[in-house]
């Protein structure tokens, strides 16, 4: 039985491919984009999210934690995250859900069962399933098996990927995908390395490989003011898209701050804290550049 580490399965997603979709967010990503709005998806293992503002100081976590991670320091609940083994016992007893476990394991069959529940809405809207993340290529065997099962059931399949993964993983996943949403973060090698922690070259090679396989792609460009909103980057992305036979669209994904609060939950610093969301006019200009 193939299983995956999952952050969330979200129904009625309307931004991850055509129609009404269910998106399966897998945990673990080889990239560490500075602006990532799902930071809990980066680490492959489970981790505890702690919302200090929801804590009512009941002390149940303090009592139950085998690692003594939760303590009252100067009358305040303090979470010593470094000691945490992510056993989840604190989240299980927290009465206000101030503590939550991020990540759980599910089999292909279990995920399929959940995905298939919205079948009528996919049929009515031309929607389907999208596997996202994290990075689906990190859990390629699971992803391929899930997509295969969905496809056999007549459900449209899509994958959202950074394109960073082994060729074998990419081929296995692409084989069962009706659409790949390919997130291209940056077109300059040095900047890509600096912003995401990985090289651009294998990503572009994988993009070419997908195209040679005849897989339909949509190139998605997360655009973050002050980071990758340069005109030359957007124009270069447009060129890349134009060079692909099966790329149907280039989508600008403007920066938003909806994920900012999650860094606090993870006890992490957010590098883009001072980045403002772009105005509608700015977004329109970006979109015009890639049209």
């Amino acid at each position: 039985m193939k299983t995956a580490e999952i952050i969330n399965i979200t129904r009625y997603c309307t931004d991850d491919g055509p129609g009404i979709r269910t998106t399966v967010f897998l945990k673990g990503c080889p990239l560490s984009c500075a602006w990532c709005h799902n930071p809990e998806s980066q680490k492959p293992g489970r981790e505890i999210l702690y919302a200090a503002d929801k804590c009512v100081f009941c002390g149940r976590c303090v009592e139950i934690c085998p690692q003594n991670c939760h303590r009252f320091v100067d009358g305040r609940h303090t979470f010593f995250r470094d000691l945490c083994l992510s056993c989840g016992s604190c989240a299980a007893v927290c009465p206000t859900q101030a503590l939550n476990m991020s990540g759980y394991s599910k089999s292909v069959e279990e995920v399929f069962e959940e995905v298939a529940r919205d079948r009528v809405f996919y049929d009515a809207s031309g929607g389907g399933v999208t596997v996202s993340g994290g990075e689906p290529l990190l859990q390629a065997e699971f992803t391929a098996a899930l997509l295969d099962m969905c496809r056999r059931a007549g459900i449209h399949t899509a994958v959202e990927t950074s394109g960073f993964g082994t060729v074998a993983a990419l081929q296995a996943v692409a084989e069962h995908s009706d659409l790949i949403l390919f997130d291209l973060k940056e077109t300059d090698e040095q900047r890509h390395l600096s912003y995401t922690g990985v090289s651009l070259d294998p990503i572009l090679a994988n993009l070419q490989l997908l195209d040679s396989m005849g897989v339909k792609t949509v190139l998605r460009l997360p655009v973050i003011p002050g980071w990758n909103d340069r005109t030359e980057h957007l124009l270069r992305a447009k060129e890349i898209a134009a060079s692909l036979a099966h790329c149907t669209n280039v989508q600008v994904m403007p920066y938003h701050q909806l994920g900012a609060y999650k860094y606090a939950l993870l006890g992490r610093e957010y590098q883009c804290e001072n980045v403002n969301e772009p105005t509608k006019e700015t977004v329109a200009q970006w979109r015009k550049l890639v049209e």
Partner: peptide, 16 residues
Amino acid sequence: IEDEKLRALILGYMAL
């Protein structure tokens, strides 16, 4: 809400 999504919600509900 987009028209297409709303239409799909209505028809999907009725299909159920």
